[in-house]
Write a protein that binds this DNA or RNA. Sequence first.
DNA 1: CGTAGCCTTGACCGACGTCAATGATGGTGG
DNA 2: CCACCATCATTGACGTCGGTCAAGGCTACG
Lengths: 255, 255
Amino acid sequence: MGWRIPEALKERSGQADAGKSIDPFSICNISSSPVSVFKSENLYSEGNSADHVYVVRSGLCFSFRYDEDGRRQIIDLAFPGDFIGLEALTQARFVSSVSALTQAELVAYSVDDFTRQCYDEPALSRALVECIAKEHAILTKRLVGVAHSPADQRIAHFLLEIRSRALQSSKLHPVSEGTRNRALITAGGDFNLKLPQAIIADTLGLSIVHVSRTLSKLKEEGLIEDSSAGIRYRNLDGLKALALWEGISPWLEAG
Amino acid sequence: MGWRIPEALKERSGQADAGKSIDPFSICNISSSPVSVFKSENLYSEGNSADHVYVVRSGLCFSFRYDEDGRRQIIDLAFPGDFIGLEALTQARFVSSVSALTQAELVAYSVDDFTRQCYDEPALSRALVECIAKEHAILTKRLVGVAHSPADQRIAHFLLEIRSRALQSSKLHPVSEGTRNRALITAGGDFNLKLPQAIIADTLGLSIVHVSRTLSKLKEEGLIEDSSAGIRYRNLDGLKALALWEGISPWLEAG
DNA sequence: CGTAGCCTTGACCGACGTCAATGATGGTGG
DNA sequence: CCACCATCATTGACGTCGGTCAAGGCTACG
């Protein structure tokens, strides 16, 4: 998913509750329960009854569906602060699955409580709409990309998008060094990324083989660097040029 | 876009306002102004200041963006009853354009009024979330499809989706025979569809040429029939089989 | 040391895009 | 009623991006 509550509200000025911020990890009046998901474990699966929504506290999750050929299509990644499973608000059963890329901690809210609270607190609804709008923008962007762009461009864009979202997330929801996403993201101020290529492939609708080839190409071109520690962004401007990274929706503009 | 207010609320039971329905063409307390768009004319364009949201009253519209190569990617079609331009709720300027496929009549609501009303009337927010969820489902579905499916499957799915949405729309928002979408959709109880192939191509990320070829194939296989009057669905079950049309999200299940 | 993930690389092939020419169709004006 | 034009659809030739299959390497971990 990928909807971050607090700053969405803060940014919106001129509203009754402008500047008011909602703590996504403990939304007023709603009882929340903590949930842990181990690496490669599912938080929920397609078909499960959908009676909770979640917010990522730490770790990295992703939502996906299988198409009829059994191929996995990743819908989106979820960083700390992001919502997961909002479809529960409108449907009895999940139509997608969510799994963890690393050990992840989340908080769960009952759908009934959440819905009630939306009625009592328009600001929450409002925040929801903001978050969903962001999600919408990311999806349409990806749709355009998947439909038309060549693989190198798609991948470059993906790398930048992830970087941007990870940075934003870690700014807004810093985690103690101990539980830091060390396995996956960020090292000090600098940034490098460790994701299985299969994740990239399934997100962008490419084959693993082709992702590998394309990453090698980007490596040769000096745009990135790849070690066992993960992908390092070596030439940001070059990447942005390749990805045509400008005029991107405001949410993604960090960095 | 594509978010239909009234039944969204009706379907949701157990809520304070279950059964209450909102007339999308005249939302309580909000002043609305009628808008007409001629065929091939833009309702608004990328970059325009976004201070209204719209609901389609009659006709058929579509939203799109250009990617950097100048290629048009259609995001979605909008049928009577569907919302258009909800991004105005969260952004100062539109990031997509909307154009009319036929002469279309819409109603416009000022964003400020609409937002205010969302605060006063949780049911409206609620409806909004429902509508957006539907949109989300359609988009992810298309994303999965665009990423993986071969052209014939994509097209078959698209044809079915359009049919389904058109039928739903005309059921919920019947129009007088005079203004009926005769140019495009529906003929009596039966259904046939007249859309430029370019629309199909730009929606699914295919080239016009390939759409033409693929439609010819579908014709040969007896699944559809194509005349100057439009596409006629000749073998619905065959189409569904090809499109793997089952377990589709509930919104699309009509027909 | 062996096994399991994950990544890389090569050979091959097919789906789909591009270019370009040719055909319908329908609307407009003389 | 016909000439003309714009729009849209069809068809063929050709190239390429990216998928599939298959084999082999690199860590990492028990």
